[in-house]
């Protein structure tokens, strides 16, 4: 379980988080959605002890991240946004070092590595230097590394950023599989479809505040089921309708420059904040 109470983070000139209150339940896949600079990565950095808290507190499975940092660090695995593997080491060596950092006995670490490489379908790359892997393979190794010490919580900071659609789908399947094994997952993303596909609940973050928190279905239902994008004087306007018939009826009077589609999380975010998730 992740508990965040009145979390504020101030830098010298900016306020990155302005009072976040949040509980993520055990076994839940929680998505934290927002544009660049909204405070997603800052939240993860605070929860993982990489950044100091200005005000408030955060706990991982009951352990305060500031006061019991070593115990809190044993609770989670982190998949960072950037690929921070040792490129001069092999896949096996990268995972082994992580196991050692988490005090795993050498024999059980080796068994775990073999299991995880099979789990992420990279057994044949065990002794390959990381610098010779593709971007998608490196992402999967990052996930395996985060799972090495069998954490109860997994932080995924933009796990599929920069990957093509096929590989992204593969990563999503892997994330779903991890959740099914009972791991609590905290995911930050600005890919709308990623949050829609994966998350049990979604929080919309804007300028350091949570502006909405619910299931993807409820967030979308709040504005309607169907959307019509209409081009007016080079600007895209979107209108929301409860049924496809209502949308078609409205569009009947228009000649062209419109499209009717299902509502997505981006629409819900846009209607709440007036901006797109970029």
């Amino acid at each position: 379980m992740i508990e965040i109470v009145d979390l504020v983070k101030e830098y010298k000139t900016t306020k990155a988080l302005r009072g976040i209150d949040l509980v993520v339940n055990s076994g839940e896949l929680f998505a934290y959605l927002g544009p660049n600079g909204a405070g997603k990565t800052t939240t993860i950095r605070i929860l993982t002890g990489l950044t100091r808290i200005t005000v408030g507190r955060a706990r991982l499975n009951g352990h305060d991240v500031a006061k019991e940092s070593l115990a809190a660090k044993q609770q989670y695995g982190l998949v960072p946004q950037h690929i921070n593997l040792d490129s001069d080491l092999t896949v096996f060596e990268n995972l082994l070092v992580h196991g050692c950092l988490h005090h795993m006995p050498r024999r059980s670490a080796k068994q775990r590595i073999d299991h995880l490489l099979s789990y992420i379908d990279l057994s044949e790359k065990r002794d390959t230097l990381v610098k010779h892997l593709s971007g998608g393979m490196k992402r999967r190794v990052l996930i395996a590394r985060a799972l090495m010490h069998a954490p109860k919580i997994l932080f995924l900071d933009e796990p599929s950023v920069g990957l093509d659609a096929n590989i992204r789908r593969r990563i999503w399947a892997l994330i779903k599989k991890i959740q099914q094994e009972g791991v609590t997952i905290f995911l930050t993303t600005h890919y709308i479809e990623e949050a829609e596909f994966l998350a049990d609940r979604v929080a919309f973050l804007d300028q350091g505040r949570i502006v909405a928190l619910d299931t993807p279905q409820n967030l979308m239902a709040g504005i309607g089921s169907w959307a019509m994008d209409q081009l007016v004087a080079d600007n895209m306007h979107t209108l929301y309708f409860h049924s496809q018939e209502d949308a078609k009826h409205y569009a009947a009077g228009l000649k062209n420059g419109f499209a009717i589609r299902r509502v997505n999380l981006e629409d819900a975010f846009l209607s709440l904040t007036g901006k797109k998730v970029i």
Partner: peptide, 14 residues
């Protein structure tokens, strides 16, 4: 450059 230091910062070591 590599951000590998974060791997140590997030490990349960003193």
């Amino acid at each position: 450059y590599w951000h590998i230091f974060e791997e140590f910062q997030t490990a349960p070591i003193s």
